[in-house]
Simulated scan of single mutants.
Amino acid sequence: MPPVSPYQPSLLRLLHGAMVVLVPLCWLSGFVVYSNQDGRWGRLAWVIPGEWIDIHGTFGVLLWPLALLFALYALSLGRSRLRQAANAAALIALVLAVGSGKLMNEAWLRSGQLDHLVYGAHLTAWLLIAAVVIWHLTAVLRRGGRALASSMLQLQVRANDQPRHWPSQVKTWFQRRA
């Protein structure tokens, strides 16, 4: 009998997939912003022209509601997955990055004001995201190998896990907690 492939809930796959697209875009655009505007600890060999602060901010605006939904999922339906340290650390880094980003003022970087505490927290979150994504991927591969990693990419959905079932899944979770 062949081994059973792991199954990830469709809502988790959707939210996680959106994060997989947006987080690297935020991270890379943040690197360009840092390199172009700050660069105290290194910069690209050349300045990449463009309104990178605005581009990075746009990615952040897109990430904000998805990160909120992902965090709500993680703290409710996905709570058991937070027992894995790499998953919990990834969520903490995401919250720090999005939270500090929401508190940032884009005029600070444009005017060279690099000493704000919130900006320092945002840079720290940027470094944490890089480290935690590597840790998270390594932990997934160590825990379940390619089968677990590829289960996040599956497009098939079980009969009881279609989008129309998501509200009842959330409702059931809350009823169990009451």
Rank of each mutant, 00 (worst) to 15 (best):
M1L: 12
M1W: 12
P3E: 11
V4L: 13
V4R: 09
P6H: 03
Y7D: 12
Q8G: 04
S10D: 09
L11P: 06
R13Y: 03
R13H: 05
L14V: 13
H16L: 01
H16N: 04
G17Y: 08
M19L: 13
M19W: 00
V20E: 11
V21D: 08
V21S: 09
V21Q: 10
L28E: 01
G30T: 06
V33W: 02
S35T: 04
N36C: 04
N36P: 01
G39S: 05
W41A: 11
W41I: 07
W41F: 15
G42F: 03
G42W: 04
R43S: 12
R43N: 05
L44Y: 00
A45H: 11
A45N: 12
V47P: 00
P49T: 00
G50Q: 07
G50F: 06
G50K: 05
I53K: 01
I53E: 00
D54L: 08
D54K: 06
I55F: 03
F59S: 03
G60P: 03
G60L: 03
L62T: 01
L63W: 02
L63I: 06
W64C: 12
P65H: 03
P65N: 02
P65W: 04
L66D: 00
L66P: 00
A67P: 00
L68Y: 08
L69D: 00
L69F: 10
A71K: 00
L72R: 02
L72P: 04
Y73K: 05
A74D: 01
L75P: 01
L75Q: 05
G78A: 07
R79M: 07
R79A: 09
S80V: 15
A85W: 14
A85M: 12
A85K: 13
A86Y: 10
N87H: 15
N87R: 06
N87Y: 13
A88P: 02
A89R: 15
A89P: 05
I92W: 11
A93G: 11
V95T: 07
A97M: 14
G99D: 01
S100Y: 02
G101R: 03
G101H: 04
K102W: 13
E106H: 12
E106G: 09
A107D: 13
W108I: 00
L109K: 02
S111I: 14
S111E: 14
S111L: 09
S111T: 15
G112R: 05
Q113K: 13
L114K: 06
D115E: 08
H116P: 09
L117C: 05
Y119N: 07
A121H: 12
H122N: 11
H122K: 10
L123M: 14
A125D: 08
L127V: 13
A130V: 10
V132C: 12
V133R: 12
I134L: 15
I134P: 07
W135L: 11
L137P: 06
A139D: 15
A139L: 05
V140T: 15
R142N: 10
G144M: 08
R146G: 12
R146P: 07
L148D: 11
L148Y: 06
L148K: 04
S150K: 11
M152Y: 15
M152T: 11
L153I: 07
L155F: 09
L155T: 14
V157L: 01
N160R: 07
Q162E: 14
W166R: 00
P167A: 02
K171I: 13
F174Y: 09
Q175M: 08
R177Q: 13
